[in-house]
Design a protein around this nucleic acid. Structure first.
Length: 427
DNA sequence: TCTGGGGTCCTAGGACCC
DNA sequence: TCTGGGGTCCTAGGACCC
């Protein structure tokens, strides 16, 4: 399908923009948002990027820089970001065809009905409407393929001339853009491949596009070969992946404090299982296998490293947290070794299948399954109404909320009744 | 006892994305 | 001292089967 036209909308510095909505004092100054346990910088305002703060840099390495430039530092508030994301996507859905939400802050959509100046105009309207309705600034890139739309978006974000919207459909613009774009800035080319491509003299997007397809496929595999095709305006990554079901659900955390206690790890993985179980049921899925993994720190030179995982194929597809926890805890016993300072654990729900059209095993206990299902529905709805973790399984322990430290978290303005800003009226 | 080739499934690891 | 979390896809190698 040549001659397509695809756009991608991407929220600018999304987490920082969300925080700024409720704290205008954060405007026009460097701001960063940290990962769980305040470990790394996962979002930066333009001012913070200008200071050289890179994506994913550990917080302790930029302490001095932060002090010197008075950078505002926030813990992540995923409830806020998830809620704002939903608002952006709802607004976009009213104006865009074949919307494909790609991540918390990005979505592709179909622009094949628009030509020339019409596409720019339509996307400028979208940009203004999203900004007005949600307060979130966005950029939009347009191109014949997803990869080229992403490239357009990349340039739109950086170049003030574009005013946040760039259409690379015309060959003249395209040639100019690909000649200046570095391969490492392309969607699908990470730092490893960028380095290898550079060593072969391929530095720009245009050079990658014009390289030998067979050679690329042999040296780098089918994934990068698709990128080459997309750069040649030949769609190789479909738009129509809407509503595709998840294949796995993971829940894992780095601990605030290292531990070698089996009991602490049991509580941790039990609570991760509960978190993943909620997602599983929300998506009307069942898991056919479960996995658990534990590991010691990657960054502890000299210390004995241990990491291991185990997978178990369930006797039948499951979604109730109680049963999942039982299997996970049994699995944990098989990989736990005494005497290691563990800093991370996690569980995965795998081989997910749709709840509908599932055949029950001849031997399964239908009465028990129906009971579990009613119980989980009741727990899920209570937790949704009264706040997460109102009711939880005994195996999760009492501190499942306390293991992750977020000292700098903003209030959950949009999702938690108890944290709504209070206004005191004095007459 | 010797032996080939092909298929499938699983796992681990590596690359990428946000 | 302090280094996130949640995904996808591909590939290579081993086990196993016929």
């Amino acid at each position: 399908m040549r001659g397509g036209k695809i756009a991608i909308l991407d929220c600018n510095n999304f987490y920082v923009s969300c925080e700024r909505l409720f704290a205008p004092a954060l405007e026009n100054r460097p701001v960063i948002v940290l990962s769980n346990n305040d470990g790394c910088a996962v979002a930066r305002s333009n001012e913070a990027k200008a200071l050289g703060i890179t994506m994913g840099v550990p917080f302790f390495k930029i302490r001095d820089l932060i002090k010197k430039h008075d950078v505002k530092v926030l813990s992540s508030n995923y409830a806020l970001y998830g809620d704002m994301s939903a608002r952006v996507m709802r607004t976009l859905a009213e104006m865009a065809l074949n919307l494909e939400v790609y991540s918390i802050d990005e979505a592709f959509f179909d622009m094949s009905g628009f030509t020339g100046a019409g596409s720019i105009e339509h996307c400028k309207t979208i940009k203004a409407t999203v900004q007005r309705n949600t307060g979130i600034p966005v950029s939009i890139g347009i191109g014949p393929t997803k990869t080229l739309a992403k490239a357009a978006n990349r340039i739109a974000k950086k170049s003030p001339k574009t005013a946040g919207v760039l259409d690379l459909s015309s060959p003249r613009f395209m040639e100019k853009a690909l000649a200046i774009l570095e391969v490492g800035d392309l969607w699908g080319v990470g730092s490893r491949w960028a380095g290898r491509l550079n060593s072969h003299g391929i530095k720009t997007a245009a050079q990658l596009r014009d390289s030998n397809l067979t050679w690329v496929e042999k040296k780098f595999g089918t994934v990068l070969a698709k990128t080459v095709l997309e750069l040649r305006a030949i769609p190789a990554i479909g738009l129509d992946s809407r509503g595709k079901a998840k294949k796995s659900i993971t829940s894992s955390r780095t601990f605030a404090k290292k531990t070698s206690e089996l009991s602490a790890i049991r509580e941790a993985v039990a609570s991760y299982t509960a978190i993943a179980g909620v997602k599983l049921r929300q998506q009307k899925l069942l898991a056919r296998s479960v996995a658990v993994f534990i590991e010691t720190s990657r960054f502890a030179p000299g210390q004995q490293r241990y990491k291991n995982s185990a997978t178990f194929i369930l006797p039948e597809p499951l979604s109730d947290t109680g049963s999942l926890i039982r299997y996970v805890l049994q699995l944990l016993e098989t990989i736990y070794r005494d005497g290691f300072a563990y800093n991370k654990a996690g569980i995965m729900l795998l081989d997910l299948v749709s709840l509908h059209g599932q055949q029950r095993s001849l031997f399964s206990d239908h009465v028990q399954i129906a009971k579990n299902s009613r119980l989980m529905t009741a727990i899920d709805s209570l937790n949704q109404k009264m706040g997460r973790n109102t009711i939880h399984f005994g195996a999760e322990g009492l501190q499942s909320q306390g293991r992750v430290v977020k000292d700098r978290r903003s209030p959950s303005y949009t999702t938690s009744w108890s944290e709504i800003p209070q206004v005191l009226a004095i007459s």
